[in-house]
Amino acid sequence: MAMDLSDEQRAFTAALAEFARRAAGTREQRGPSPHNQDLYQRMADLGWLGVAIPEEHGGAGGGMVDMCLFLEQLGHGMIPAGGFATSAIVAGAVERFGTDAQKKTVLGGTAGGRVYSIAMSEPGAGSDVAALSCRATAAPDGGYVVEGQKTWCSNAHIADAILLVARTGGSPGDHDGLTMFLVPAGAQGLRVSGIDTMGGREVNDLYFTGCRLPADAVVGQAGAGWKQLMAGLNLERLILAALMLGTARRAFDDTLAYIRERKQFGRPIGSFQVMRHRIADLATEIECCRLLVYDTAEKVDRDPGRVLPRESSMVKLKTTEVARETALAGMQMMGGYGYATEYDMEKHVRATLISTVYGGTSEIQRDIIGKTYGL
């Protein structure tokens, strides 16, 4: 670990690990969906979903290190809490820019087991956020009317509300003129349509047709959506990195257990040098990721208002790519069993492959890192 944990933090991670073992230790317990609301609500009742929510909104008041500890255990324990990452990101945006009423709803809702989603990408705009064209037009009553389509919206089908980034001014290509809105999932004029993926039902298309929003649906300042998005980079990328750190550790542990037991040519396959060296390389890479995750999290806790574009991109890039390589190596070392649905390795592969795409692709992260060096 990059830092010394307090007794409270050690007890917290131990409790999470035990919960994962008892409540989510089998496929039957976890269920087929990436998000099991019954298990999710049990964690909410234990106070865990509010790990980084301020106490006045029903949370524990923890920092980014506490959040990463929680996410790492979610990934390692394979706890089907797929709705947490997007909920935490939305809660972070609302905490920074929302009204008191919005904070009460979203922060309290996150701590209480509600799920929230984000609608940013569009069919013609993914990595290029400035190209967004979904438009919210000001209405005579002070509200807005939204027209357009969003895509790849994680958890929109199970969300209570959706954080929409839409254009209220300018034209596609402008960073100015973007605005955040909090849209109830059941809003008239909004249609949610699932997208089939390797991971099942996780993401959705959203279609806005004459969707009317009141003036108080705006989160923060109208037209300042781009600056508000940039302020959330630390949180978003650390969330994804910590989750994949846990998944990488789990893929590694599953591989190690297998090669210790599996015998070929009269001895465990883990005793062959080629396997030992591969395990050594993976273990070293995972430890590097863990140090990077918690070092960055500590920096955020020391100065929560400081945006860390280089560090947050580095941690997202490194951890997701190591997680992917760990899962693929695990599948290779397990042979046919790594491909079979009887084992969890194929799930690790699916989860880690997409992690290098969502939240900013590896290519985008490398470009951002390069720019921080003046290139």
Rank of each mutant, 00 (worst) to 15 (best):
K103G: 03
S87A: 05
L182G: 02
P214T: 00
T151L: 07
G186F: 08
T352V: 03
E321I: 13
R135V: 07
I162H: 02
G83Q: 11
I364G: 00
G62M: 14
G148C: 01
R366I: 09
G124D: 13
Q332W: 14
R167V: 01
Q228M: 15
A327F: 06
L132K: 04
V145N: 01
A91G: 04
A93E: 11
E346N: 12
T99N: 03
S313C: 14
L69G: 06
G148F: 03
V129F: 13
D367M: 13
F265H: 09
G223D: 02
D205S: 06
T372G: 08
F272C: 00
T197R: 15
A20V: 07
D176Y: 12
N36A: 10
R276L: 13
L178A: 01
I239L: 14
M198K: 10
L182E: 02
Q188H: 08
G335P: 12
P54R: 03
I195W: 00
Q73I: 03
V300A: 04
G148L: 02
M331W: 08
A20G: 04
G336I: 04
A280V: 00
C134G: 02
R30A: 06
M67F: 15
R302L: 10
L71G: 02
L74Y: 12
G169H: 05
I354C: 08
I195C: 01
T86H: 05
E363T: 11
M180H: 11
G58A: 08
S87T: 05
H76N: 14
W226C: 01
C211H: 04
